[in-house]
């Protein structure tokens, strides 16, 4: 009997340790891209609303999807991109948003509402938008940079940084070959795979956010980057320039959504409303350098940033560009291509 009592005691202790001590403050868990917010904004929200924010970061959409789909993390708010939002809507992973709780939604530019990934504006509130392009160091590159093909030029062997993100890297390769970056045609994808494998000896590294340090300090000549990161890097190192190749690129939108893992939907809506408040939206835009869909925040930006074509490209720059679409069942072909390219 004594033995049993001891066992029970241990189990109790184990359960107590595992469950942790609860805190009285409500908790909001946010899942965002790495380096994609002005972190002061988080503590401001904590103070104003008397809550605790758990802030987690991911490096690619796939990364985020796998975690949320597996039910990990209890995320209340996530900020994925267009095609991933579509996929999450289709797989019933997102809550519909109650827009009565988000009055600041009115500041979002109409042209960013009702886009293909969320045609009825039911699941998402736009956060940022941008493009993918080539960032190059003018002192190290003497050719004109107007095509993705320069990333396959042997002259720049071991001077090229690629994104460690399957959709982006395969997408620009498809664009280089003259195909759509949403293709499901196995033959076109096979060609893209061969091209990426052929490019591998020229690549210095496949990187994520490290690209910023590397390009600013002149470690490499060319890199595939997202536009906002390009704006940030060009501010730090004036030798850098950003271009969207003529073949076209990817035009993307990141938006705030509430995954079904959320346990406090109302608080999540309050957070989204807070993020869409003019002063906060301005703070974030100013800090991270991406293009904002927020009309008021955009109005407060410095004019030189508004004229910067990296941040706010003209329509002509985007004429060949496409928005990613959800690949549904073809996604596994992309997974496999990327695994094989990396494994080679």
């Amino acid at each position: 009997m004594k033995k049993l009592a001891k066992l029970v005691l241990f189990l109790l202790v184990a359960v107590m340790i595992l469950s942790g001590c609860g805190s009285s403050k409500p908790t909001l868990t946010v899942y965002n891209w790495g380096d994609y917010i002005d972190e002061d904004v988080i503590s401001e929200f904590e103070e104003e609303f008397g809550v605790r924010v758990v802030y987690d970061e991911f490096a690619t959409n796939e990364d985020m999807y796998v975690k949320i789909n597996a039910g990990g993390g209890n995320y209340d708010v996530a900020i994925p991109s267009d095609y991933m939002i579509k996929r999450m809507i289709d797989e019933d992973l997102l809550h519909t948003i109650n827009f009565d709780n988000i009055p600041n939604y009115k500041y979002i530019d109409e042209q960013f509402k009702g886009l293909g990934y969320d045609p009825n504006n039911a699941y998402s509130v736009p956060y940022m938008w941008g493009t993918v392009g080539i960032l190059y160091n003018k002192t190290m590159v003497d050719d004109t940079v107007d095509s993705w093909k320069i990333l396959w030029n042997e002259k720049y062997s071991k001077q090229i940084l690629m994104l460690d993100s399957q959709r982006d890297s395969i997408g620009i390769t498809l664009k280089m070959l003259g195909y759509s970056l949403n293709t499901k045609n196995p033959q076109e994808l096979e060609e893209a795979k061969e091209a990426l494998i052929a490019q591998k000896p020229l690549v210095l590294a496949y990187v994520g956010d490290e690209v910023k340090d590397k390009m600013i300090s002149g470690e490499a000549a060319l890199a595939v980057v997202w536009s906002g990161d390009a704006v940030y890097m060009m501010r730090q190192n004036p030798d850098l320039a950003y271009t969207i190749p003529d073949e076209g690129s990817n035009l993307w939108f990141d938006a705030m959504v509430i995954p079904k893992t959320s346990k406090n939907k109302e608080l999540a809506e309050q957070f989204i409303n807070f993020m869409t408040r003019t002063d906060i939206a301005f703070k974030n835009t100013d800090y991270i350098g991406y293009s904002t869909p927020h009309t008021e925040a955009k109005g407060q930006l410095e004019p030189e940033l508004l004229e910067d074509e990296a941040a706010y490209p003209t329509i002509e720059d985007l004429v060949n560009s496409e928005v990613f679409e959800d690949l549904s069942s073809s996604a596994s072909i992309y997974d496999r291509i990327w695994t094989e390219v990396k494994a080679k």
Binding site: T60, Y65, V66, K67, A70, D335, W338, T339, K342, A343
Partner: peptide, 10 residues
């Protein structure tokens, strides 16, 4: 390879 299958590819 293992990390990629679990975290990025699913």
């Amino acid at each position: 390879l293992i990390e990629q299958q679990f975290l990025f590819v699913g």
